[in-house]
Nucleic acid binder design. Sequence first.
DNA 1: TTCTTATATTCGAGAGATCGAATATATCCC
DNA 2: GGGATATATTCGATCTCTCGAATATAAGAA
Lengths: 114, 114
Amino acid sequence: MKPVFVEEIHQLHAELCQALADPKRILILYALSERPLNVGELTELLGIRQSNVSQHLAVLRDRGLVNAERDGTNVRYSLKYPMVVAALDLLRGVLRDSLSDTRNRAERLMEIVR
Amino acid sequence: MKPVFVEEIHQLHAELCQALADPKRILILYALSERPLNVGELTELLGIRQSNVSQHLAVLRDRGLVNAERDGTNVRYSLKYPMVVAALDLLRGVLRDSLSDTRNRAERLMEIVR
DNA sequence: TTCTTATATTCGAGAGATCGAATATATCCC
DNA sequence: GGGATATATTCGATCTCTCGAATATAAGAA
């Protein structure tokens, strides 16, 4: 495998992470991990403009992370790879540890300052 | 827990993902998962400017993903949470599946077009 | 066809990310 | 102290992201 392809893999890998790098898209993915939802339901859930929801869904579609199935006038979105949510869960664990570390460090510093 | 805090968690979660959303930072994290490295070694590995490496390391530091330990004139960086690389591995798996799906779809389409 | 509802796309403004170049800081050695 | 090396930061240009507003498309009902 040529180095140029290796770099392209890392680019795609980064673009996948980029798709997760927005709080609303994270919410969308977690919601879809429960059950498929159409755009209207997601719009109500997120409490933002419908066009904005569609824009975020377009990002997730571009990255191949969701399926879109038209059902009459609705479009039903579903999660394509549950592993994405597993990855998000791992990162949430990292976040928890990181916050805990930060808090403990702050507490130690407070002891010294007191 | 108040809704405002829930939203802040999703914001932090997204910021964590954002830290992974760059090919060079992904390479840095994978390299550090093998062993701690100093800035010079990372610069050589990535083949980019030293200032750029420092900038990427600053992002990872800000998000609390790496430790930086000064050793004389060098600074040794190490991975703080191996789970981050586990999450990257999961996403790489998703990427592989996604590419495989795309290829298979293209093959089926070629059958029809032929 | 026209009307209505659901969803998608386009556009432009503002915010944010990335880079190289230049400069600053920190440590060590003399 | 001064000089050398390693790393960090700042600055400005360019690019990308996100949003709301407006508009476009698609399907169904009348």
